[in-house]
Amino acid sequence: MAYAKLVDVTICTGCRGCMVACKNWNDLPVDTRDYQGSYQSHDKPNGKTWNVLQMKEYENQSGGFEWLFRHQACMHCEEAACVKVCPEVAITTTDMGNVVIDQEKCVGCTYCVQNCPFGIVELAEYVNADGEKAERAQKCDMCNDRIHEGLEPACAVTCPLDAIVFGTKEEMLELAKERLEEAKLTYPDAQIYDPPGVDGTNMIYLLAHPPEVYDLPPNPKVPTSAVVWKDYAQPLGKALLGVTTMAVFTGFITNKLFNKEGHGHDTEEGGEINEETKQ
C-alpha cells in the first residue's frame, strides 16, 4: 500500500524541527553555509542535508508581505525518474511507496542527479562497512527503516504543528482536501500539489500559492530522454541481443548435433532427413 507525507505549508511556522530531526535520525554530517543575506540556510536539499526549510519573502497580490515556509525533501514520485535511469538498479520504490537508494549498489554515476525533476538527489561522501569512502547518491528515504517498523518518519513525528503528517496516500489526500477548504478562507490560491506528470508523489503539498511561487515546477515530468532510452531503446537493444545470441547458439548447436557425421556429406544427410519427415 502506498504511504504518503502531507506537508501543509499554510500552518508551518518555519521552526526547522524537521531539518534537525532528519539529521539526528539519519546521522547526517555537518554541512555549513556562509550567510546568504536571508534566513534561508541551504538553498536546497543535498546529499548531506536531506531536508531543508525554504524561507521565502513574498509580496502577495494586495501588496502585503508574507513569509513562506516550505519543508523541501525528496518527493517520492510514483513514477520516479531516478528509479528509471539508475543503471545499477540501486534506486528502488519499496512496497510502501517511498523511493530509496542503496549506497552499496550505487556507483556515483549522477544519472539520478541530472534527471530528478525536483533537483533533490545529490552525491555525498558515503563510508561502507569496510571504512572505504566514496561519493554516492543520497537523499531522503522517508525514514525507510522507521516506517517499515511501524514508526512515522522523524520529521513527521517532530513537527510541533502537524504541518507534516504521515499516513496512507488516500488518508493524506482526504486530509489535504479537508485542510484545503480551511486554507482557502485565508489563501484563495491554495491548492494541493500532487503532480500527475510523475504519476503523483508520495509527498503531497498543500500550498498557499501557485507552485511557481515556491520554485516548484508546475508540471514536473520524467525527462523525455530518460523515457525514450529506458522504455524503448534499452528493452529493444536487450531483446535484439537476446534474439541474436539465441540464433547464434541454436545455429551452432543444431549444426553440431545434426551434422556431426557430416564432413562433406551434409547435403546428402540433410536430404535424407527431409525425405523422412515428408514420409
Binding site: V83, T92, N144, D145, K238, L241, V243, T245, F249, T250
Partner: peptide, 27 residues
C-alpha cells in the same frame, strides 16, 4: 540446456527491484 542459457541471457523472469525491499536494522 542451450535454450535455458539463452533465456537467462535475455533476462526473462527476473525482477531485482522487487527482491530489494529489505530495510536496515532500526538503530
Amino acid at each position: 540446456g542451450a535454450t535455458a542459457a539463452t533465456l537467462a541471457v535475455i533476462e526473462l523472469g527476473f525482477d531485482p527491484k522487487k527482491a530489494q525491499a529489505a530495510s536496515k536494522e532500526l538503530k
